[in-house]
Amino acid sequence: MPVRKAISTANKQLMTLTPETLPRHELNGLPVRVVESTDASRVGLEGRVVIETTNTLSVEIREGGDTRVVTVPKSGSVFEFAITDDAADAAKASGTTSKLADTQPDSSTADESDRAGDDIASCRGDGPTDHRHAAGENVAYVTVDGSRLLSRPARRTETNGDSPWQ
């Protein structure tokens, strides 16, 4: 605990869930939408990520009263994650939000997904589109190509090289 405390106070700029850190951050629990998929029947699925494996995300979809869980492969899919309030504020502070859009997410994703397809290597710049609701709550939508998330869930966070001699 003392070590952890020291580290957390040392770099006080919080590494919160921002569009940059999202591919390394926890995906479970985030609202997600499948923007593109090799299987057309999966396009447009909307729900929350409940289980992540190396190659798949399981999305829990609410339909009226009942829920169902759909497993979506990461490779061959493009996901749009919604980051809410405090995270979106942090994104704004770090200057990542490229524009303010007053459109509904449905209408904005058509061009957004095209750009994400062109530039898979950088999720930043293409992805983050800040979106303001009339209620005043902040939601940032981040579009990430599924192939960027291919990793064991626990190891996605690590930034070290892949040298076996550590």
Binding site: R4, L14, L17, T21, R24, H25, E26, N28, G29, T157
Partner: peptide, 15 residues
Amino acid sequence: MDVAAERIDRLEELA
């Protein structure tokens, strides 16, 4: 707080 510590906090809420 780095990403890993934050993931643990989020997972606690989810659990």
